[in-house]
Write a protein that binds this DNA or RNA. Structure first.
Length: 448
DNA sequence: GGCGTTACGGTTGAC
DNA sequence: CTGTCAACCGTAACG
């Protein structure tokens, strides 16, 4: 991305925003008229109360900007242009010239890089510009990392884990059979008292009533879950299989049993790794991420970096690391499918096999934008800052993060650091489980 | 100028 | 198979 005529990223951004705002008939960003800026901020909580202008453009945020915006002619950052285009490529360019896929997380490599740079003392604003990721995003990722120790995105999609598991139903039935006059609330209390459920996953009284009505009522025939077989798993990994990293692990070679979750250290505690990054917990493997980024020119942001429109590259980069055997354990069918689907790619990937974590994105959504771990993000423009004077070269830390640096960056978090879950750690929940980190590497917060 | 916060449009996956 | 829902995402903008 080249900023027009000597404009720095910021100036360019502002001017772009201004122009767009003008087009939208309002002020925007730093160029907002005083009355906008001075406007009392509505109480948070009501999004509409913010009174923001309706954004008519597609894409995230309130950008009143044309989606192709700042990067006319930019080879990689193609926009949706119709169904056909959507099939092949999509992605948008933010005001910094970075490429992103609306609604999808940044690639792990970028996330890692953000944390890495932050650990080196680079200011978030500089990271934002360097990686061309919005500062809000940088802030968010760093905040999350500080909170959970994980660089990985949360679990996307899915529903809350069921609380009325077969086991719970069975207990309810037992209670009801033992005391036909029992109230639902009493059942609820007993579920808690007996440890069948905890406060986070105990069914509501109404749920219990529904169970009594629907399942226990027709008690005669056992439900599908009660045929003596092992009940369907409590959604031990109820969320996003895509965030699993079913690499063979020395500890859990099959990847089938992902061990403890949700802050409840399993028998193995840290030893049982719910998920692992590729074998890549080693420093050298982590370093491999960088190696790859360097190879792709991503970190250098070199002009020569070709922006591959093939999303498959990136997807496969992140997936070639684990052999099909590990995916065949039945936990990660989509991942397996993705492996199959994307194995054809990428010659260049051999160098990084085993280095990168499985991509958190389903291959299906990885069309083309993140064609390389960071290359797609670092727009093929001049490195930031344009002067080539890397801010990362500053104090004590070279731009090149050596393995030790990165290892330090990634391990400085105490593995057993207290986790502040944003959500109750229900067994089926998806609370981040940084307790499961290995070598200080964050384990995906999401489960599947 | 930096950064935390939040509305927004979007994606995802279980139900 | 489709729609709904609730989670998450990153961006842009506000303060």
């Amino acid at each position: 991305m080249k900023f027009p005529l000597g404009l720095g990223a910021r100036e360019w951004r502002v001017s772009w925003a201004r122009a767009a705002a003008a087009a939208a008939g309002r002020g925007a960003g730093g160029g907002a008229p005083a009355q906008h800026r001075a406007r009392p901020r509505p109480r948070p909580g009501s999004r509409l109360a913010r009174g923001r202008p309706l954004c008519l453009s597609r894409g995230g945020g309130c950008r009143a900007l044309p989606s192709r915006g700042p990067s006319p002619g930019r080879p990689g950052a193609r926009q949706l242009a119709g169904p056909r285009a959507m099939e092949q490529t999509y992605g948008e360019v933010n005001q910094l010239g970075g490429v992103f896929v609306n609604g999808r997380p940044l690639p792990n490599a970028i996330r890692l890089r953000i944390v890495e740079l932050a650990q080196l003392g680079i200011r978030p604003c500089d990271i934002s510009r360097q990686l061309r990721v919005s500062h809000g995003c940088v802030s968010k990722i760093l905040a999350r990392y500080n909170e959970t120790g994980s660089i990985l995105p949360g679990a996307i999609g899915g529903s809350k884990p069921r609380v009325t598991t077969p086991n719970v139903v069975k207990h309810i039935r037992d209670y009801k059979q033992g005391d036909p006059g029992i109230f639902a609330w009493e059942i609820r209390d007993r579920l808690l008292a007996d440890g069948v459920c905890d406060k986070y996953n105990v069914p509501s009284v109404s749920s219990i009533s529904r169970i009594l009505r629907n399942k226990i009522g027709s008690l005669a025939q056992p439900g599908p879950y009660e045929t003596g077989k092992q009940p369907p798993p409590q959604p031990a990994l109820p969320y996003n299989h895509i965030y699993q990293y079913p690499y063979p692990s020395p500890v859990s070679p099959t990847g089938a049993k992902m061990g403890s979750h949700h802050g409840v250290p399993g028998a193995a505690g840290h030893v049982s790794i719910p998920r692992s990054w590729p074998s890549a917990h080693s420093v050298s493997n982590i370093l491999g991420i960088r190696t790859f980024m360097e190879q792709t020119g991503a970190l250098a942001g070199s002009e020569g970096t070709t922006y591959s429109p093939k999303m498959e590259d990136w997807a496969s980069v992140n997936r070639t690391a684990f052999p099909a055997t590990s995916a065949v354990n039945g936990l990660d069918k989509p991942a397996l499918e993705a492996d199959i689907k994307y194995t054809q790619s990428a010659s260049s990937l051999s160098a990084v096999g085993g280095f990168l974590p499985a991509c958190a994105y389903p291959a299906s959504s990885q069309h083309s934008v993140y064609s390389s771990p960071a290359g797609g993000y670092l727009a093929p423009g001049p490195p930031w800052p344009p002067t080539q004077a890397s801010p990362l070269a500053a104090p004590g830390a070279s731009l090149t993060v050596h393995s030790g640096d990165l290892a330090a960056a990634m391990t400085f978090k105490h593995p057993s650091r207290e986790v502040v879950d944003r959500k109750p750690p229900s067994p089926g929940g998806k609370a981040p489980d940084s307790l499961s980190s290995l070598h200080g590497l964050p384990i995906p917060a999401s489960t599947s």
